[in-house]
Design a protein around this nucleic acid. Sequence first.
DNA 1: GTCTATATAAAGATAGAC
DNA 2: GTCTATCTTTATATAGAC
Lengths: 197, 197
Amino acid sequence: MEHLELDIKMRILLSAKKLFARQGYDGTSVRQICEEANANIALVSYHFGGKEKVFEALFVNLFPHKDLLDIKDLLQDPVEGMRTMVHGVIKFTIADKELSDIVQQEIMLESNRMKVVLEFVNPMWSKVKQLLEKGKEEGVFHFTSLPQALLMVINLSLAHKKTCLIEKLFPNDELVPDILADQTVEFILRGLGAVKR
Amino acid sequence: MEHLELDIKMRILLSAKKLFARQGYDGTSVRQICEEANANIALVSYHFGGKEKVFEALFVNLFPHKDLLDIKDLLQDPVEGMRTMVHGVIKFTIADKELSDIVQQEIMLESNRMKVVLEFVNPMWSKVKQLLEKGKEEGVFHFTSLPQALLMVINLSLAHKKTCLIEKLFPNDELVPDILADQTVEFILRGLGAVKR
DNA sequence: GTCTATATAAAGATAGAC
DNA sequence: GTCTATCTTTATATAGAC
């Protein structure tokens, strides 16, 4: 029932993003999406070709492609490079919480839609992988298994905001985004053995 | 089509666990569960009272309640205590990958079923929280925000095995469970500033 | 306790009018 | 490009026979 100023295709995409994030892909119906978008049910098929295609279009149109990959010379200093990358990913998860929630849901489900998600997310992980390799070569990062180190960095970069997990344990608390990013980055760097304390 | 030797209630629960883990709660139908369990469709309603109740029963019956909480004197040495807890959680995620996958899916969805999941999972996080507090008091752990530190420890303990995330980046690799647990624990301890290098 | 048969609702998708 | 109306399938759940 929002963004009535936009054209229908975009309204459908934004509504799908909102509902997929809140209820998951399988928990969201095409009817719901169209209701939210103030669009007719038939338009999803007409404009996109079905629910699956809406999901794809969502990433094609709304994923912030280049932001993180345009940065040159990331590999010059692995520690600073890692700082930049992790900060960038966290910035994305805060800027578009819905899309980042969808990414994580699909990862956890290991659904068929992973193919689409990975297409957009892998370039970032590839950069992080390079940073880890370079850092290990130079002796600033210390870990046994590269794939597992990468997994830990990814998970910490993405899954920092699932506060529902602990809200019962911190009834009055709230997380401050600025502190969040810095603390996560420094945690990762220390975890990787890059001495910073 | 397995475990035909068990009684029907348990067969339904095990089939539900398997399918929820693979396809998610919303992506799994009662029909599918009964087919997998070699049971009649009507039996889910008769024995449990519906799909939601099957989910609940799954945790009530199959969640390893006490394993981690019986350990006494965990707080004597926060570093060793943390080592024990994280190892324990990782052991659980490996022992029952299906159940741990379900836990993570529901966390990411922030579904209505979180209430059930948290009931079983919170006691563990509560212990970890205590360890973090004690460790910070004693000056062995260093972090700014307790809730966020807790979140990072939880995430690393749970989400270490989503290898689908990076399998394109490591075509031939495989993760070794033993190394996994140790590397994760040490990563966490270093991340928390407990000097171990 | 287990089955068949069915009730009822909701899903995704499209034909055809406008 | 958008709508109404409808098709088909599938969902959860249950009544009632056995």
